[in-house]
Design a protein around this nucleic acid. Structure first.
Lengths: 223, 223
DNA sequence: TATATAATTTAGTCATACCTAAATTAATTT
DNA sequence: AAATTAATTTAGGTATGACTAAATTATATA
């Protein structure tokens, strides 16, 4: 069995790898709130276990074995988030933190039971895909909200799950995955978005919009 | 925040204290599957935190502060056991092991939600009392099954939760808390119990009977 | 009482996973 | 190309919580 810290490293490497770009010691350290020197140490251990590839000064990559473990942890995390949300009514801005602790101790048996209870879901409350038991992840096509232009309508696919203040803010506008909205007004390259959500108007700053991903983008008639 | 190990020590001291007798280093070491020398080290730490009292060679006792923490952990454990059993259908011989890991990471918020879902229960699947939010424990009167005599009937109150093979065995006879049975035949001081459970006969060895606690003991007419 | 046995504590190690400070390597600027 | 700056690694240290082996204290027996 891996330690909790090692699991967190693998999960983080996976996520940073997904976002594109090579995963450097420094980036990982920032992401994990740990010093770069500590990352170097752990990377050595993970490498000796054949879970990552690493060349000095060149960044890390998951091996197939490391990927399997990373996806297991992410599956635990996202299923737990959805379970806490649906079965226990934990607000969506709280499930991430909670799942962060539970993901390392939940058994495969309990996970399978939650999965069944939830009807074998494919996305968590923030719209992130839940890997299946074999580690297969459904890739969703989406673009950041910041790419939207005046008059375009779309559907929220996914939002960043790690900032609970952001999530509370989005919740106050009903900006959950699945919610449709239309851009009423935005200046190119700067300034906030004024949008229409089911008849309600809302103003979303660019910094916030960066963390919202949408699809089904279409030009629509103004109402 | 306490470490998981420290929490386990406090919980164990509480349980051994309940069973009566002073809690020696050796007893604790056995209970925790750890060497006596390790116990001495942890006891020192707990003492410096004012969570236990300890005089060299004289055993440990929980202070009030230590008791509060022990009861919190036990509450977590037992609520989790019942939740896993009722909400997720985890078999009763598996909930202990699972709760053992979860009890250290569950938040007060999630615990409160499970408590509400379960309707503020007072006992876990093995019949052990669940301390309330203030640490108040309902004491149930019960005697070990080994004290029963021929012809007596009773109701199962509680069974030892830590041996899952034992629990599976009891489950096969429906010997859950709340189940009534009558002693058909037992030799005094030795030999197994032959009992009647809802018309079914079962033979329960003394070693097993030691782990079953009953109340409502009455002489009844033979059928 | 003296001695043998059992329980407990002390002393010193080990592994994990973090830290800081210094040294090294890479990348950028002049 | 040389020098500066930034990123990474090495070296050495800390805290936890386990371990073994040896020393100490308590208890039981002769």
């Amino acid at each position: 069995m891996l330690t909790q810290a090692a699991e967190d490293y693998l999960k983080s490497i996976y996520k940073l790898q997904e976002k594109g770009g090579k995963v450097s010691t420094g980036i990982l350290a920032d992401y994990l709130n740990v010093k770069p020197a500590s990352v170097t140490g752990m990377i050595k251990k993970l490498k000796s276990m054949k879970l990552v590839r690493h060349e000095r000064y060149q960044g890390v990559t998951l091996t197939d074995a490391g990927m399997v473990i990373a996806l297991e942890i992410i599956r635990h995390h996202r299923l737990l988030e959805l379970y806490l949300f649906k079965a226990l009514g934990v607000p969506w801005d709280g499930v991430h933190e909670e799942a962060e602790k539970l993901e390392h101790v939940i058994s495969e048996d309990v996970e399978a039971r939650m999965d069944a209870f939830l009807g074998y879901p494919t996305t968590d409350p923030h719209g992130s895909p839940i890997p299946d038991k074999n580690g297969v992840v459904l890739k969703t096509h989406s673009i950041p909200m910041t790419d939207l232009k005046n008059g375009q309508s779309c559907v929220v696919v996914e939002v960043n799950d790690s900032d609970s203040a952001l999530l509370r803010h989005l919740g106050s506008f009903n900006l959950y995955p699945g919610t449709a909205f239309r851009v009423i007004e935005v200046a190119p390259f700067e300034g906030p978005f004024t949008i229409d959500i089911a008849g309600q108007q809302a103003v979303i700053g660019r910094e916030v919009a960066k963390h919202i991903f949408v699809n089904n983008v279409n030009e629509t008639d103004n109402v």
